[in-house]
Amino acid sequence: MDSKKILEIREQLEEDLTWRKDEIRLLRNQLSYINLDDDKKRYRKALLVMLYSHYEGFCYTALQIYIKSINDESLKRKQANFHLATCSLSKEFDAYDNIDHKPQHYKAIFKKQLPEESKLHRFARQLGLVEKINEFWEESLFIPDEVVNTEANLWPIVLKKLLYRLGLPHDYFKEHEGNITMLVNRRNGISHGRDKEGFEEKTYNEIQQTVFQILDSIVRLIIETLTQKSYLITS
């Protein structure tokens, strides 16, 4: 990937991140018009819900941009790292996991008298994978959008799973796991009616600072990965 393309991706990421940060800051500035401390605490509940929305939304968007940038390279699977190659084989693995799937060669041998033997069915699916293994490596790499699944609650473990699947450093945000957990817990507490009182300024500030750091780090991680070509297989 050339430097011009990477610059375009950086601009795309930063444009999406900028409007999200600006919106949070705009909403937070409204606190100056609220006089009562209890009202400010309740208002911070709305701020925290919006903050979580942008945290999850940007993570999802940024990783989708990363996937698209890899797909646009028109690589063969054999050129990509094993994580990305595996992601691009999701349909093939789904077919293998489907215990009702009978490969064509299996049907041709047994025709209408398919033996109801689970071990034999499994062997037939394994054989189908082995037969096509060389073909798989020569095919074009395409990572489906469905690989990025935030599971509606982007806990630290979910973020770690996403990074792992895409071949990115899975522990990249380890130091922020505590505050991410607090963010998701508090967002859920508001949704479920547990957190009714709202938040002190110090608590909210810590969470917002962490979220902004994470979002900045995601941009940095993606650009570093593309610049260093870590998405390619190492020899």
Rank of each mutant, 00 (worst) to 15 (best):
M1R: 05
I9W: 06
R10K: 15
L13N: 11
E15Q: 09
D16E: 14
D16W: 05
T18C: 08
T18H: 10
T18R: 12
T18Q: 13
W19H: 05
W19L: 04
W19F: 04
R20K: 05
K21C: 08
D22S: 07
L26G: 08
L26Y: 15
L31N: 04
Y33L: 13
I34C: 03
L36C: 14
D38Y: 11
D39Q: 14
K40L: 05
K41C: 06
Y43M: 07
L47T: 08
L47E: 04
L48C: 07
V49M: 10
M50V: 12
L51D: 01
H54E: 09
Y55T: 05
C59A: 14
Y60D: 09
I65H: 03
K68W: 02
K68C: 04
N71C: 06
D72T: 00
E73Q: 11
E73S: 01
S74A: 09
R77K: 15
K78Y: 08
A80Q: 04
F82P: 07
F82L: 13
L84P: 02
L84V: 03
L84D: 01
T86I: 15
C87V: 04
C87W: 02
S88A: 15
S90V: 14
K91A: 09
F93D: 11
F93P: 08
D94P: 06
A95I: 13
A95H: 14
A95L: 15
N98C: 08
I99K: 14
Q104N: 11
H105T: 14
Y106E: 10
F110D: 11
E116R: 07
L120D: 10
Q126P: 07
Q126I: 12
L127G: 11
L127F: 15
I133R: 14
N134G: 13
F136N: 06
F136R: 10
W137A: 15
W137P: 09
E138N: 14
E139R: 14
E146D: 15
E151C: 13
A152M: 12
L154R: 04
W155G: 05
I157W: 11
V158F: 05
K161Q: 03
K161T: 03
L162R: 06
L162V: 11
L162A: 04
L163Q: 08
L166R: 02
H170V: 09
H170C: 06
D171E: 10
E175F: 08
H176P: 03
E177C: 09
G178T: 13
N179W: 07
M182L: 13
L183N: 10
L183W: 14
V184C: 12
V184N: 08
N185R: 15
N188K: 12
G189T: 04
G189I: 09
S191I: 11
H192N: 11
H192F: 10
D195M: 05
K196M: 12
K196G: 10
K196V: 08
E197A: 05
F199H: 00
E200C: 03
E201R: 11
E201S: 11
K202Q: 10
K202Y: 07
K202L: 05
T203H: 01
T203K: 01
Y204T: 00
N205Q: 08
N205I: 02
I207C: 01
I207H: 00
T210Q: 02
Q213K: 09
Q213T: 04
D216I: 02
I218T: 00
V219R: 02
V219W: 00
V219Y: 02
L221Q: 01
I222F: 01
I222Q: 00
E224P: 02
L226T: 00
L226Q: 00
Q228F: 02
K229H: 01
S230L: 06
S235G: 08
